[in-house]
Design a protein around this nucleic acid. Structure first.
Lengths: 112, 112
DNA sequence: CTTTCTTGCTACGAATATTGTAGCATTACG
DNA sequence: CGTAATGCTACAATATTCGTAGCAAGAAAG
């Protein structure tokens, strides 16, 4: 069994309405949240490798996001170390996976 | 024809790699970006109404995000005023629309 | 048991980003 | 004229993020 994040305090900033979509948009709208999920999409990564994958983002934020994502039930810390997606996290990741294709088309329309 | 945002400088923080998906994840990972797209999903809104919809977020950030989203080609300012999604923006919005259903299922698994 | 790795994680000052309040310039309506 | 909208900005207070350094614990090897 994988380690559980402290699931005590589940409040999320910006979710004043309580509507789950708002809570989710707020959580995903913090720096590195989307990126972390994206980098973990294929296989679990250790904290160091994940940091490298995320352009050497500071460990402070990474650790904070990782904790939040764990409390949300999207990410877990495996027994032998290394962060990976939970089944729920994998679902979420697949939900916005089409973003990849969209991004490619987007470039062709704007960036040249 | 709708007004164009200053499309001169198209750099985006965090996009050091140049991969469009990274640029997109970074842009969407800023505060209120996802929320703005979400609130505009049905119909254009004036800046004031949009602000109200976004929990009275400060006009400073809202204005900044709106400018970025306009430069990205996702949002436009209509002739008679009011912000709305471009066809491209609508596509993007639909891409992560399944997030709504996911959020509902998410609540039932965690929030109770 | 010490040395040498690696793991996850934290401290802390500096740099940025966001907030909250107030207000400007412009346009439209009477 | 006065009133009410629009998009947008200034600016100080606050919160978040960055960058660097390092700790404690575990595993592997000598």
């Amino acid at each position: 069994m994988a380690k559980q994040a402290g699931s005590s305090d589940h409040r999320v900033r910006g979710s004043r309405t309580g509507r789950p979509i708002m809570t989710l948009l707020d959580l995903l709208g913090r720096r590195w949240s989307l990126r972390i999920l994206w980098e973990l999409r294929e296989s679990p990564l250790t904290s160091r490798v994940l940091r490298t994958a995320c352009d050497e983002a500071s460990p402070t934020v990474l650790q904070a996001r990782l904790t939040e994502l764990r409390e949300a039930g999207f990410v877990e810390l495996g027994d032998g170390g290394g962060y990976g997606l939970t089944p729920l996290g994998r679902e979420l990741c697949e939900t916005f996976m089409p973003l990849h294709r969209f991004a490619e088309r987007w470039r062709s329309k704007t960036g040249a």
